[in-house]
Design a protein around this nucleic acid. Sequence first.
RNA 1: CGGGGAGUGGCGCAGUCUGGUAGCGCACCCGGCUGGGGGCCGGGCGGCCGCAGGUUCAAAUCCUGUCUCCCCGACCA
Length: 581
Amino acid sequence: MELAVAPRVTLATATLRAAMTRLSEYLLPTEREPPADAEALSHKLMVRAGLVRQIGAGLWSWLPAGWRTHQRVVQIVREEMNAIGGQEMLMPVLHPADIWKRSGRYGFDEMFTLKDRKGADMVLAMTHEEIVTTHAAQVIRSYRDLPKILYHFQVKERDEPRPRAGVLRTREFIMKDSYSLDCDPEGLELSYEKHAVAYDRMLDRSGLEWYKVKADVGMMGGHGADEYMAPCAAGENDVVLAPGYAANIEVASADAQPVSLPPAPDAPEEVTTPGLTTVGQVATTLGVPSGALLKAFPVVLDDGSFVLVMVRGDHRVNEIKLRLALQCGFRAARADEIEQRLGPPGFIGPVGAQMRILLDQGVRTDGGGYVVGGNRPDIHLSGVVPGRDFNFETADVREVLAGDLVNGHAVRIEPAIEVGNIFKLGTRYSEPLGANFLTQSGVSEPIWMGSYGIGPARIAAAAIEQFADEQGISWPRSISPFDVHLVTLGKAGSEEREVSELLYEELIAAGLDTLYDDRDANPGEKFADAELLGVPLRVTVGRKALAAGEFEVQLRRGQEKASVAVDGAVAAIAELWRRLP
RNA sequence: CGGGGAGUGGCGCAGUCUGGUAGCGCACCCGGCUGGGGGCCGGGCGGCCGCAGGUUCAAAUCCUGUCUCCCCGACCA
């Protein structure tokens, strides 16, 4: 049996080729059962498929096959960063604490800190804004030195309160973080847009389903942020989606679904509600929808003043949106404070309240009476009309619900994992760290910065979450640890085995990354392992097909089977590979 | 940080209540059979039962302390 010499195919990942990948020699410790404590699908499958192993809470080692996937994602990210003019560098993980003290970001609970032998405070990198900015301060002198996009792939250390779901939320992980340095807001805008383009391409190339959503800037500070979300069951965030709209639920805004209100009488009426302290209880007892109630959420601002936040009974206050609306930090009022300022918790309301009242914009103010707490034990008021019975300011502070409307379309809400984010930092770091440059007119100004992160491990895990089936992982071809999983069914010395050896060499020569299952194992075990690992193409060399002059090929996704003629097999396999998702 | 659960061989577990010197399945090693969906037979290796202290003639088992891990929530630059 002779194999036709295949034309050499050029593949994007050609530079990553590794030589010997015979399963008989390869470290791929597959397990039949998932770890008992694993919950998330990707966690179970990554361990079962031999991709990763845990060494402590939120601390994971990448085994050879898992690392291949990680590195493939890294390479995609690198290529797209380079394509927008990014310059790859490397900054340390261990930092002098002083730099973080100067930027005002020292002492977070999530920050790992330590002392060196001289007793100097050190920190482990949570991110690298402080470090790049320090370098920029040292090195950037003039507008002629700008703009720049600098990036690296480096370990981040975060003492997460609760690591979870395998590789999805860890205390140590590799992130590609890039930083743009510009002269002015316009320059930053351009760098930000370049990153948006690069991120779109990275995620498309990685084969993921993903959304770009509007996001909270959080404690990064700055002027604007988008997040890249991969929908999956193990996701930690909820994204709100409608045609032409995508936002993190933390900042999402939509029109509330209407609720029918009873007509309001001329004045509020007292109703007795003994012991009824929840919206559900009151609504049921009074026979009105819970949306016809107003819920009071008293908060104490950082300046000590009280604000009574009111949302519809079927809505929830979104604390991030509330913080944005208040432009101020706050905490929920304590029971004793509520008692003192308003009335018994469970019966508080806006009528007669001597404080600022913030009414969510989902509340109708065009007539119709609401039920509110009466600020006295066992008393509610019905027929309350905002504006008539109490004064208020309006703000959008409620959490969006599935079915709410954006541009007339009902939104849906999906769990998703954040795989990347882009932030406009502005001068948040350049000012405190003195990263200034001289403008054309000789004036010293702070550099305008942006910061952009993406997590290869999360991309890998999200891909598993999105495409796995009963049998195991089903990789998108661009980030699969291998291109082809070659299974020989022949015993040592058989014809199948000899042909497999030749085919293996030819596949590699053709530029296809091939894992060769040359173990002396039963077919069932080989197939089960192949499906668990999830390489997109499986080529099987078996006696019957070989006698017919064919190899069997199975596409992992959908498990569709096909045959290729032994003559020209490599070219045919390469062609199949090219057409994979 | 609040709530819940768990630490026994590489993985999954039983044994703990009722103390007597550790067991099962898979994996692994050796030999043989089988050879298209985790197959079969025989023979083996491997664990100071998370750690420390205590009670006892005797502790995986009872007591005290401690460490670790997981899940839900809070948190999440």
